[in-house]
């Protein structure tokens, strides 16, 4: 009998959670087989050189239930997510590809709504959907609709990197955390919770452009806080940049209703997914002007300084609690599971 607690023999949902299990899968199973790609593998988008200049290049697949949720749908999400990955490298998003994997039985009306939303989101982002592909799989072999989008963007003069956070940098988030994951969870499970919960799905490239205009190359690092939430994003930066972090929990913005649902379900808003949130590590002397630029943008109105990059304890993200004690903010392990009581 194989070791029962060993999840290395089959893929489980935890491997797609954005946490430690997924990192292990990428490091042990994917990168070794796809050698030569590892240098930028953990960035949100790769930087590739072509004759015409430097491009940012990324891909992402979208699997969400329900397909239509408060604050968005899988179509706009598939545009925003990939646009955001490009934006985290300071790139101007230009072209997207779209791959649709449709399960037999999906109402055409649903598809129509999703694709219309996708077109509308692309228009608003100023990106061209340049190519696409459509596959239909048998009933039961998909979850209604999966979407993959790849994106190309033009790099600017400064390319922020997950490896570039420095001790002394200030950590800034652009708004409240956990909105998307909780809104989708409440919609999917039809929880009878009377709160106005909406996904934060939004394109962040214009916000990033404003931040870069204000702070230039003082904006050392940008990360979008999707699966695994803020905890995963900050731990990835701390590890990749070999720096420590000290956060102030009282400064971290979380909507009271999101905090309430998290409390009921035994989840931390710090590990719940966002789709329109980023964290930036910015040199301290430029932090105020970057923060001002963020406050002036619709997707940065609630931006807040949540902590600092420090030199001690590299790789460790620490959090000062509301009562003045300190604890570690761990990389989430796997699947988010609500608890018993």
């Amino acid at each position: 009998m194989s070791s029962p607690h060993d999840s290395s023999h089959t893929i489980s949902l935890g491997h797609g959670s954005g946490g430690a299990m997924m990192q292990q899968l990428i490091a042990e199973e994917l990168l070794p087989a796809l050698s030569g790609q590892s240098a930028e593998a953990l960035e949100d988008a790769a930087i590739v050189e072509l004759a015409g200049g430097r491009l940012a290049f990324t891909t992402d697949s979208y699997v969400v239930q329900p397909l239509l949720f408060p604050g968005g749908d899988i179509g706009s999400l598939a545009v925003h997510g990939t646009v955001n990955d490009l934006a985290m490298r300071g790139a101007v998003p230009r072209f997207l590809s779209v791959g649709l994997i449709i399960e037999e039985g999906l109402p055409v009306d649903t598809l129509r709504r999703v694709v219309a939303s996708m077109g509308c989101a692309a228009d608003k982002c100023g990106v061209t959907i340049a190519c696409g592909d459509t596959k239909v799989v048998e009933h039961g072999k998909g979850d209604g609709l999966f979407i993959n989008t790849s994106g190309l963007g033009e790099c600017g003069p400064h390319v922020p990197s997950v490896t570039a956070a420095q001790p002394g940098d200030v950590l800034i988030v652009n708004g409240t955390l956990g909105d998307h994951g909780i809104a989708v969870m409440v919609a999917r499970e039809q929880l009878e919770i009377s709160a106005d919960l909406r996904s934060d799905s939004a394109p962040l490239h214009e916000l990033v452009a404003a931040m870069l205009q204000a702070g230039g190359d003082a904006v050392h690092c940008l990360r979008d806080l999707t699966r695994g939430g803020m905890a995963a994003g900050l731990n990835e930066i701390a590890t990749s940049s070999a720096v420590g972090m000290m956060l102030e929990s009282s400064a971290i913005p979380v909507r009271p209703d999101v905090a309430g649902v998290c409390e009921i379900l035994g989840l931390s808003p710090y590990v719940v997914a966002n789709e329109g949130k980023l964290v930036a590590a910015v040199a301290a002397d430029q932090a105020d002007s970057v923060l001002q630029a963020m406050h002036a943008h619709p997707y940065g109105q609630d931006a807040a300084i949540i902590g600092q990059v420090v030199s001690d304890q590299p790789g460790l993200v620490r959090l000062r609690t509301a009562i003045g004690t300190t604890r570690v903010l761990e990389l989430p392990a796997g699947e988010l599971l609500p608890r018993i009581c």
Binding site: H5, S7, S12, G14, G334, L337, R339
Partner: peptide, 16 residues
């Protein structure tokens, strides 16, 4: 409830 999913018994967990 969710937290029973990953706990492993002699024949593995519900997640397995």
């Amino acid at each position: 409830f969710g937290d029973m999913v990953r706990v492993a018994g002699p024949r593995g967990s519900l997640a397995d």
